[in-house]
Design a binder for these strands. Sequence first.
DNA 1: AGAGTGATTAAACAAACGTTTAGTTAATTA
DNA 2: TAATTAACTAAACGTTTGTTTAATCACTCT
Lengths: 206, 206
Amino acid sequence: MADKKSKKIKKNSKEIILMSAKVLFAKQGFELTTVREIAGKAGINVAMVYYYFNTKEELHQNIIDDAFKSFFLSLKEGVGQGKGPKEKIYDVIKVYITFLHHHKDLHRIILRETISQSKHIDMIVKKYISRNFDLVHSIIKEGVQKGAFREHDTTLSTFSLIGMILYYFTYEPIFTRLISPEKRKKSITEFLPDHIFNLFMEGVNG
Amino acid sequence: MADKKSKKIKKNSKEIILMSAKVLFAKQGFELTTVREIAGKAGINVAMVYYYFNTKEELHQNIIDDAFKSFFLSLKEGVGQGKGPKEKIYDVIKVYITFLHHHKDLHRIILRETISQSKHIDMIVKKYISRNFDLVHSIIKEGVQKGAFREHDTTLSTFSLIGMILYYFTYEPIFTRLISPEKRKKSITEFLPDHIFNLFMEGVNG
DNA sequence: AGAGTGATTAAACAAACGTTTAGTTAATTA
DNA sequence: TAATTAACTAAACGTTTGTTTAATCACTCT
């Protein structure tokens, strides 16, 4: 009958911890998020966190790893094979914006980790950020070879393109405040891809 | 003679604290930087920090305030009056890159503060980031009016331009690793402004 | 010379942190 | 059913944190 203080056995505690931690890390960052806080949000005991993860750091790394993996996977699957360079670039922009729009928390975590210059950052950078970059870079290089794009430093333009996109999410609260009321009603995924694609292709010259 | 444990009176302790704190906040962030650490780097007692600043937070705010002020000032002074929109945009790019290149620590602090969603962020955003944005935005709007730039959403292109620039500094360690060896020898202020200017004007279309 | 003032110090404070311990309960196996 | 294993808990551990206290030193002014 009545469950008084009965110990309920949940089999998915580990996943609940990961979910709670992801939200809190994204909102407050690694240092400002307490292990007790994570446990509290997950509705479990503090020690359970250490039952599944050796340290707070390990839990954090786990989340970052997942974030990067899913990002790269989306990008790889979202870019249509057999298309021309211009269409591929449009796909890249679309996937980047769509993914980040639906995983704002992950973008925050990635960005934070990039700034923090932790010991593990080097491994993470090599493993994931560079993979995303290389994928976009190879498309642009292909475009130059085939004459779709003009001759230029493709490393720099790849960086510029990704930078244009990421900046919207990095400074999203400011962005939302500044755009026109009509566009504020729409989703960012509707109008932003076309704008960035046009700008990257044609520039603003009149 | 010999100064044993003599108390030396330094009149510039406050400035030394500010300098030390700036470096440490930039490198490690607010939470990871200890008041004892700041005092240690400054070569003074911990209590001296609280002699000049009420809290660690107040010291931090002081540094951020200075950072934003000097940034906006550089921008305002660096953009030539009486020039055409295109030349002004080039100036903007040049000043942004030059300033950030010489104040990498400040950029890190600003970025960190933007992500952190602290209570004071709203005031800071309104006060400074928007001011920089408005300055650039007004130049682009002027360019469209005068026919120098094509008709387009100028809010979005302003965001894109600033994003392109800032991204290089946000992800600088990755960037340095990826650019060509010849460019790595040069300073970023030499080749980056022209690249971004050309890209923003003409795009990559072949 | 001595009172007054600002700069500086060592030492302590309570609170919060990540982590560990030792034990309890529920489920599984034999 | 008894023994074993996995899931869970309350309480404590030592350390570090931001901050305060009370006293000391160096200097200026009369």
